[in-house]
Design a binder for these strands. Structure first.
Length: 303
DNA sequence: ATGACTAAATACTTTAGA
């Protein structure tokens, strides 16, 4: 899986984002507008709800025009993940090695894709929901997470594990912990799966930046949950130490959850400082925390 | 209120999401 030949001689500052768009078809205009405003260099998308061909036909030209390469693992109706990059897109891995199937053995769902972008292996993930704790889907979720852990452990390129993990890391990441008792997304076994990734050195960059704040990435469409800020933080960016040490900014783009026709998830954003020439290894300390220079684009206010 | 909303196909009702 590792391929050091694709690591560039210098590593520039870059902006990485992950966003569960809940249907590219329904979010097409908003997605393009968001790309133009935020100018991310690498984007992980989830819940495409399109086949690879349909994705390429619908939005491929728009992405190419904006300088993005892209790769997808799509399905016609549900799931589907993508990676967009304008800092290289090499050594694509579709799915997780030995990932479990749900239902028919041939039915490997479109829930994981990764590639090396700007010297970092970036994963775009849509972890199974789990539905109910007593369900087959919950067992499938845990097994899928275990295989993800194995995949991450086997790679030596610096990593960014991004996506809709469908797990709230702590009670601080749900609006009402009591309301979730006995439900998926908050169980000890699911949280242990995140702890197992942390054990490999992956760090939750949003929580590191906002250690005490209430920060959510998902709000149910119903009952004015967004307006009340009754949400959950289940979309995560987990960074290997070499990457996490380059953090210049990390925030959740709540603007994208506002207005007419939003996804129920907001993008999670990470700005990385440049790494020293040819050195993508551990750094001490990172350079100044200014955001990478992008022509004519203002840094949105975090929170 | 075992709700509320959104999206896609199974399509005027069901399944899934979380």
């Amino acid at each position: 899986m590792q391929n050091l030949s694709v690591v560039p001689d210098t590593v520039d500052a870059m902006r990485v984002a992950t966003w569960n768009v809940n249907s590219v078809k329904q979010r097409h205009a908003r997605l393009l507008e968001w790309l133009d405003q935020r100018q991310p260099d690498v984007v992980c998308l989830q819940e495409l709800k399109l086949t690879d061909d349909a994705f390429a036909t619908l939005i491929g030209p728009d992405l190419t025009e904006r300088g993005y390469q892209f790769t997808t693992f799509g399905q016609p109706q549900w799931n589907g993940v993508a990676l967009l990059s304008r800092v290289g897109l090499d050594d694509v891995v579709r799915g997780i090695p030995d990932a479990p199937a749900f239902g028919a053995a041939s039915d490997i769902e479109g829930r994981a894709i990764s590639a090396v972008c700007g010297g970092i292996r970036v994963h775009s993930l849509y972890t199974p929901n789990g539905r109910e704790v007593a369900s087959d889907h919950y067992a499938y979720k845990l097994e899928w997470l275990a295989k993800l852990r194995d995949q991450v452990a086997a790679d030596t390129v610096p990593q960014l594990v991004c996506g809709d993990m469908n797990i709230a890391p702590t009670d601080h990441d749900v609006f009402d912990p009591a309301a979730f008792e006995g439900h998926t997304h908050v169980t000890p076994a699911e949280r242990q799966a995140l702890a197992d990734l942390a054990e490999l050195g992956l760090r939750d960059v949003i929580r590191e930046r906002w250690p005490d704040e209430t920060v959510f990435s998902y709000w149910d469409y119903r009952a004015g949950m967004f307006q009340k800020n009754y949400g959950m933080r289940i979309d995560l960016i987990l960074a290997g130490p070499e990457v996490a040490d380059r953090r210049a900014a990390a925030w959740i783009d709540r603007q994208a959850r506002k207005g007419k026709g939003p996804s129920d998830h907001a993008p999670v954003m990470l700005d990385l400082d440049a790494a020293p020439d040819g050195d993508i290894g551990p750094m001490v300390p990172p350079p100044s925390a200014g955001r990478p220079a992008k022509k004519g684009v203002k840094l949105p206010q975090a929170q």
